[in-house]
Design a protein around this nucleic acid. Structure first.
Lengths: 348, 348
DNA sequence: CGGCGGTGGTTATACGTACAACTCCCGGGG
DNA sequence: CCCCGGGAGTTGTACGTATAACCACCGCCG
């Protein structure tokens, strides 16, 4: 009893050719088509037949129906990338890196930009995308991924110390902060202000810890710490507090947790009538495009964001292949620009 | 003859429950499960049975297999968003808007960030994602989508005049440029420089045309036009050329095609020893976060990028529903900030 | 001359869902 | 008393693919 075509009678247009169509065009069976196009025909199909099949497929513009393949194989070749707010250029770069590797391996990459900051609402799976082979989560709080955990999906974490993941990709933050500290110390700075993110995530606690450890036993120290939401406005306010406070030794440099905060710091200095870097030095972190857009350009630490996305995707593919995927630590580099210089009171 | 489970014997873990599992748990047939969970059981299944089914489904954590559903229905509830370079915050916002609407309607949204500028390489479909219901393309040159056209997929274009699309969403650029022109004229400016994008796309030819039309018959005019790649560095160079040229009446304001160029213009002015806005005014376009990050903050035109993404997704859904989806024109608003002011030589 | 292995395919499922068509049961009207 | 209608489910496909299992043919060896 023939059933009405799901496409319905309202679809007079072209229907895409299937493996059966290719088969009859080439005078073989659908199984042979699948074998040939799947690449595993060595010793099962003659070279001449294989050629005939490939030709027919090309002429008809055949492309396999992914839904059918996914159903058959139980895998979808689709991964999900979870990031906090894609409007931060950093995560856009992460995505770009990941999508590059993904499409190299015929993988689709879905993107879930978590609505708010790092400790976002749990990722909603019941809704859209239940057909995933794995997940890459960037800078997410462990809690936000509890819904994921239950799915038993392979999970790769970027920039996190979550122990529940199958693989991890991190930046060498400690080294970056040592570079920042070393740079400022060598310029003659001893008293630093730290403008830190108010978000209590591993990403930023690590940055704070690394800064303090880098200064340990060097004669330099953080004389003031201010917390701020991760934005230009936040950096402006926090820096204003840090520079107008009544700390005994006034800070001669402001170390910021990222470039947004550092940009705010530049604005704060200007409004306070301070010149950068003559009166106060400012450093950022991440090396966003913003760092070279502002004046003076920011001394900052470059994080290879795209490379992190790529590494995350590679790690996920490795896990899906059953191969071992270990923790990876990506190198970072200091980029000295014009927002830092010797303090006016340089004691040399 | 029972076949080995595709998952293979290497998967000892949990397999997800299927509609059949739910059916036997509830003591009904799989068809009934599908009916109830599909929501179309009115008059076909008793309320008590429906309740039983829903309960069983919830307890077992049942979620339908999307691949199977897609195969059966011939639709995938997945769309593709094509943007030029996601690292531009503007397109990140477009995506955010689109993904919001998409997930409201249980749609997945794939993202294809075209590697280079607007007139990018044709979108590669043979590779990753052949299972799409429709495409939204933002600021893409018509040529880049030729591969798409052949697919016969529903296509919504953002910020383009491509006639081949099923629906279009545009910004009211003409109004924005009239606002810019009016603002500068009322401040007393008569001689303007135009720093335009070197990219020859509808987006930017429209901006140039609108500027000239807005000035027509007002006494103001563009005395100098410089083209530049769409970046801060490009804006810097082009503005330097525009301000050091030997045009008879020197421009007192620089109108830039977007905020990146305007940021470059600020840097150029500073390097030439000109104060903004006392010696020269600068305007941007788009109202990126960058506009308030720089000093002085940019007078610019706000484009509702997220709303455009949302409108595009809504239009696509409408087309897929067989409803008519017409061209939509989104309103834009001038945001006066501190990068504009009366010219020093204000002839009033 | 019979059997045997290899070459070159084909046939038959099964994946999980949505839905058309069928079945069964029960009450009421002619 | 028989048939009809409709409520409540069930049975049977079909979507397009990947692959296990089967099979026909041919040449060759013992």
């Amino acid at each position: 009893m023939p059933e009405a075509r799901p496409g319905g009678p309202g679809t007079p247009g072209r229907t895409r050719p299937t493996g059966h169509d290719v088969a009859s065009a080439a005078g073989v069976s659908q199984a042979t088509v699948s074998l040939v196009l799947g690449g595993k025909w060595e010793g099962r199909v003659s070279a001449r037949t294989a050629q005939k099949v490939r030709e027919a497929a090309r002429e008809m513009g055949y492309r396999p129906n992914l839904a059918a393949r996914h159903l058959r194989l139980g895998r979808t070749r689709t991964a999900l990338l979870v990031v906090p707010a894609l409007t931060n250029e950093f995560f856009a770069a992460v995505h770009q890196g990941a999508v590059g590797i993904a499409s190299d391996h015929d993988f689709g990459l879905l993107l879930y930009p978590s609505p708010e900051g790092v400790t976002a609402a749990p990722v909603p799976f019941a809704s859209a995308s239940a057909a995933l082979d794995g997940v890459i989560a960037s800078s997410m709080a462990p809690g936000a991924l509890s819904a994921l955990r239950g799915e038993g999906l392979p999970l790769v974490m970027l920039d996190s110390d979550d122990p529940g993941s199958d693989a991890t990709v991190n930046f060498d933050i400690a080294h970056g902060m040592r570079q920042i500290a070393g740079h400022l110390l060598s310029l003659g700075h001893r008293h630093l202000a730290h403008v830190a993110s108010a978000i209590d995530s591993w990403t930023f606690t690590t940055r704070a810890d690394s800064l303090h450890q880098a200064l340990h036993g060097t004669g330099g120290s953080v004389v003031r710490t201010e917390h701020a939401p991760l934005s230009v406005a936040g950096g402006l306010e926090a820096t204003t507090r840090a520079l107008t406070g009544t700390t005994a030794p006034a800070p001669t440099a402001v170390v910021c947790d990222d470039d947004l905060l550092a940009t705010g710091a530049l604005k704060a200095a200007r409004r306070l009538g301070l010149r950068v870097p003559e009166d106060v030095s400012v450093t950022g972190f991440d090396d966003l495009a913003l760092a070279t857009a502002v004046e003076p350009e920011l001394t900052t630490v470059h994080l290879p964001a795209a490379e992190a996305g790529a590494a995350g995707m590679r790690a996920l593919l490795a896990v899906l292949d059953g191969r071992q995927a270990d923790t990876e630590l990506l190198p970072v580099t200091l980029v000295p620009r014009t927002s830092t210089g010797p303090p006016a009171t340089a004691a040399r």
